[in-house]
């Protein structure tokens, strides 16, 4: 307790610690934001609460490990490229494979459930999660699988704050993906997707291929989950790569979704960064002994409860209108 207070006093006096806390929070928040965004995209366009998001994350990271380090495909045929470019091509291939897998999951397990109660569909995804996660774990096997990111241990030291190169890239990639998705939602398919989210039947009547929209949504979500899995599994997070516990990260992103609002993509981003920074802050400042171990891990959920008490549909979510 006393030691905790001393740490608190020191930390608040120390501006650098605060800056470091924010940077760490943003870096982790980016992972949550990517996961939350995929989750929201699925929910918005297909009204499915996807409990299989963790499985998609683990699978995406595994596929990247497989393509980038085990198979080195298609990089091994692209010898004219520098090594980092080969790696990037491998990763993109893996992410496309992950996206295709997302489409497959939706077609096989969720398409038959269209029109069923939302709750039933959500539970189907719980079943999908168990199946996919178990099979992925079998493929991952006994040892963590490295992803072979080219940045290695490189760290940017600005004096007042330190950040790994991989984290810089991760934040950049997240921003690019956010922009891409914002842009995509204004494209023809994006508009069709928003129309589907608003009212499936009307969208269909207007000539929107709703089935294709579902596929696109799952593909995007699986892609984003793969990216999140990638950055979660490399230095400095889990330096050794993807293992059987990787998939659990998605449970940390659920509060981000709810805080932002289940159906709001900007909300997912806000929620993701909010949870990341809250965890980081708890890690830096809430080091009191009586809080025991693992308190930062539930900060997201506590924040979620508080937000829900004030706004039951999340910060940026659409209030549910109850019609008779």
């Amino acid at each position: 307790m006393t030691s905790g207070l001393v740490v608190l006093a020191q930390a608040t006096a120390d501006g650098n610690a605060f800056a470091q806390m924010i940077v760490d929070g943003i870096s982790f928040g980016a992972i949550y934001a990517l996961l939350a965004m995929g989750f929201v995209i699925i929910f918005k366009s297909t009204s499915v609460i996807n409990f299989a998001h963790g499985a998609l994350t683990g699978l995406g990271a595994f596929l990247i490990a497989a393509f980038a380090t085990v198979l080195d495909f298609p990089g091994r045929y692209l010898t004219f490229l520098p090594e980092w470019a080969q790696w990037t091509v491998n990763v993109l291939t893996a992410l496309v494979a992950a996206a295709l897998f997302g489409i497959l999951l939706e077609r096989v397990f969720l398409r038959p459930m269209v029109g069923e109660a939302l709750f039933a569909v959500a539970i189907v995804t719980l079943g999908v999660d168990i199946v996919v996660r178990t099979i992925t774990n079998d493929w991952i096997g006994t040892q963590p699988r490295p992803l072979g990111a080219p940045w290695g241990l490189a760290v940017v030291d600005l004096g007042w704050v330190r950040i790994a190169w991989s984290e810089v890239i991760q934040i950049l990639v997240t921003i690019i993906l956010l922009g891409a998705i914002a842009f995509f939602l204004r494209s023809r398919t994006g508009v069709a997707m928003r129309a589907t989210a608003f009212d499936q039947e009307t969208a269909r009547a207007q000539g929107v291929n709703v089935g294709r929209i579902f596929s696109v949504a799952w593909a995007i979500a699986a892609f984003l989950a793969g990216v999140a899995g990638l950055f979660y599994s490399i230095f400095p997070r889990r330096a050794t790569g993807v293992d059987q516990a990787t998939a659990f990260i998605a449970f940390r992103a659920f509060p981000a979704v709810i805080i932002g609002g289940l159906d709001s993509i900007p909300g997912a981003v806000v929620g993701g960064f909010a949870v990341g920074i809250a965890e980081s802050a708890a890690n830096t400042y809430l080091t009191f002994d009586f809080l025991g171990n693992g308190f930062p891990g539930i900060v997201g959920y506590l924040l979620m409860m508080v937000v829900l008490l004030i706004r039951p549909y999340g910060l940026l979510g659409t209030p549910e209108i109850r019609r008779v």
């Binding site: 609460i49 659920f254 709810i258 039951p312």
Partner: peptide
């Protein structure tokens, strides 16, 4: 009770973690 439907599933999920 304040939240409804699918929000509830995630709130109760939070209970398990807390």
């Amino acid at each position: 009770v304040r939240v409804r439907g699918l929000y509830l599933a995630i709130v109760t999920l939070g209970l398990v973690f807390i």
